[in-house]
Amino acid sequence: MARCMVPQSTYDTPKNAPTISLSKFLNNILAPIFLSVARETTFINSIDVIRKLEKDVEDGHFRPTTKFVTMDVTDLYTMIPRQGTLEALVGFCMKHSKNNRIGTLYIDHIMKIARLILDTNYFAYYDKYYKQIRGGAMGSAFTQVLANIYMYEWEQDLIKYQKSKNEIYGRYIDDIFMTTNEPEHKICQILDKENNKNVNIKINYQIGISVDFLDVTIQNVNNRLRTVLYHKLAAEPYILPFTSEHPRHILRNIPCTAILRAAKICSDVNDFNVEQHNIMISLLLNGYPPKCIDKCFQHFFKLNAATSVLTDLNERTYQHL
């Protein structure tokens, strides 16, 4: 059996691999514990980011000098070291165990299963089989929670620093978002220091008053928080075609879900109106009848007592959506 470590690539675990069930089993045990521990600094989605920013505004921490920092962790799943992640895992389990157990499992049993999963990651490349000796398989449920635990240990210095400054810090898997009122050169020094403290964790960061994070563009416009939906330039306006054989209620839910997402993300009614037209165009391009689109939109605004947003772009009503 050939052995190879290629940290720049990612490998999927085959769906029928023997350790898939074990991986899901450990994930189901550890992921809820991790989320309860790290919820304050873990983003669930872009709407979660916006809610924290809105709270920042309410608390008076959002200022004309407020800038945003986005960071991307390079090849997180395949760069985490085997021994380092196992040490982080055992430390995490010991800290959050009762009588040396997590649920019904002893920590020793959890560690044995974790080693088994990491030691049986194989992949095929040009008709040859290789054993992955660094990182975890992309298709493994356990890899995500293991990477999260490893990252949680790494990010503690940044979390403490941001908390001391009443600033936001949060992470969505390998994407990090922060606010800062520090001079740019100072925050760069801090991030460069963090970038050099662990050879396995490398970040690329951007700082500005306008950044893209997940599917939202976040801006500080003259001391006013502005958020709009972010569309990648290469993204195509593809959604589930109306001609598909899916049940009708699923097709009817797509316009409502799209308009709800736009309302949750766009902070300004005019931006929402632009996005509403984008949604309409996407629906038309994918075969949705105009009457169906109009009916779905009418239903959404009527259900939320916001018909004046549809007819008059009423800003006050929109803010209560």
Rank of each mutant, 00 (worst) to 15 (best):
L321E: 03
E87G: 03
E194G: 08
Q276D: 07
E153I: 10
P18R: 05
T179R: 02
D72F: 05
Q206E: 10
N121H: 11
N45S: 08
G139W: 06
L225S: 06
T307I: 14
G170F: 01
S23W: 00
Q319N: 13
M138E: 06
E194P: 03
G136S: 09
A17N: 13
T78S: 09
N278A: 10
R316A: 15
S23N: 03
T10Y: 12
T120P: 04
A234K: 14
L284D: 06
A114C: 03
I44N: 10
L30V: 01
I218S: 00
K67Y: 05
G170H: 03
T66I: 06
V37T: 08
E167L: 05
N286Y: 06
D268I: 11
G91Q: 05
L285K: 15
Q132A: 05
A262W: 02
K163N: 15
S23K: 00
N27G: 07
E236M: 12
Y238M: 15
E245I: 11
M151K: 01
I265S: 00
M94T: 10
M178E: 04
E155R: 00
Y288T: 09
M79A: 13
L233S: 15
N27L: 02
N223K: 10
Y125H: 13
I20D: 01
T85Y: 02
F123H: 06
L105A: 03
K15N: 12
K128F: 13
E54Y: 05
T243D: 11
H96W: 10
T74W: 02
